[in-house]
Amino acid sequence: MTTAPTRIPAAGKARRTPRTTIPVTALLVTVALYFLVPVYYVVVAATKTTSDLFATNGFALAPTFALWDNLALVFTYNGGIFVRWLLNSLLYAGVGAALATYFAAAGGYALAKYEFRGKRLVFGTVLGGVLVPGTALALPMFLLFSSLGLANTHLSVLIPSLVSPFGLLLCRIYAETSVDTSVIEAGRIDGAGELGIFHKLGLRTMLPALVTVFLFQLVFIWNNFFLPLVMLADESLYPVTLGLHNWSSQVDRLPEFYRLTTGGALVSVVPLIGAMIVLQKYWRGGLSDGAVKG
């Protein structure tokens, strides 16, 4: 009489039981609600008139659906100044994040793949830059840009956004582990220059890290409030965050600014959501490549 062989679970494979899946699922649902409930509130608030905003439940739709009227007011108020703020934010965040990602990739690649004098000092300085809050540098930068005649210009917000110590640190770690030195040597043997190797091999291999740095920097610049507040005095140069703050500070004087603020807040999150949806496929591709290589 033969006995059936005992099945041994694969190594490293956790056994799923209700005792482990239920708490994990509950935790994930709680975290998801923590992030989604504010977005839901913004969407609902943007559909209400000023009177309904205070007379109805904050998480329930009002009898009067005023979303389109609110959005029309947002885009036409004061000669369409909100459109100008939106374009300014796209300039600061889009161009700033793209260039900051490129510079971080170049610096991280150099720190990971080249040996030069002062390398440890440079890396230590970068680590120190990660620990310094941006608000502590805003006033010194304002004095610097004022002396250069660049205060109250687009460049006063755009130039500081080009530096991302965290992005450089992340790119350095990723390049060190993903960019094969033998591939670089092969490129040199084939006659490719260092910049050509970096652009054709390094950037392609580092793509998942670059997307991560770009999204982090995009969100950081888009939500940045203190730096534009210090640097800018001209309302036409404001980003969306500073413009919405300007509107919300006037709600006690004119109640219509409640509709402007809620409608503008809804529009302001749409570009970030769109960027996350468009770029998430590159994350998935990078994770799949890593799984295959492993």
Rank of each mutant, 00 (worst) to 15 (best):
S249R: 14
A14S: 10
W68K: 01
L162V: 07
L260H: 09
F226E: 13
M206V: 09
G191F: 08
T6S: 15
L287D: 00
F82C: 10
T21H: 09
A106V: 15
V213M: 13
G202P: 00
I221A: 12
S249E: 11
G129E: 10
G243Y: 13
A97M: 08
V95Q: 02
V130T: 01
G118C: 09
A186H: 07
V44S: 03
K281W: 03
Y282D: 10
F226M: 11
V37D: 01
L218R: 10
T6W: 04
L28D: 04
A45C: 13
N223D: 13
G79A: 05
L91V: 12
H245N: 08
P160V: 07
T20W: 09
A192Y: 15
Q250T: 03
E176R: 14
L279F: 15
M1L: 13
G79S: 07
L131H: 03
A136H: 05
D52G: 03
A275W: 10
G263F: 01
W85K: 00
L272I: 14
V230P: 06
G264E: 06
T153Y: 07
N246A: 12
L111T: 00
E176W: 01
L150M: 14
A60I: 04
F225T: 07
V126H: 05
I197H: 08
S268H: 07
T49W: 02
R117M: 10
Y258R: 04
S164P: 03
I173K: 11
H154G: 09
Q250R: 13
N57V: 00
R84M: 04
V122I: 15
A151V: 07
I8E: 08
Q250A: 13
L272Q: 13
G167H: 08
G94S: 11
G263E: 01
L201Y: 14
M276C: 12
T17A: 14
K200W: 11
M276N: 03
F123R: 13
M276E: 04
T125E: 00
Q250D: 04
A291E: 09
G96N: 09
L232G: 13
T241M: 15
A110H: 01
G263I: 00
L137I: 07
F65H: 03
Y174I: 04
T6I: 15
T177P: 00
Y41E: 04
P38E: 14
M231Q: 14
W68P: 01
L162S: 06
T2G: 08
V278Y: 15
V267Q: 07
A14K: 04
F75G: 05
V29T: 06
P255A: 05
E256Q: 14
L203E: 02
D180V: 12
A192N: 10
Y114G: 08
T212A: 15
K13A: 06
G124Q: 03
V44H: 00
A136K: 10
R117P: 00
L143N: 12
A175N: 09
K119I: 05
V83Q: 06
G286C: 08
Y92K: 04
A105L: 06
N57C: 09
W247K: 00
M141H: 09
L53G: 05
N78P: 00
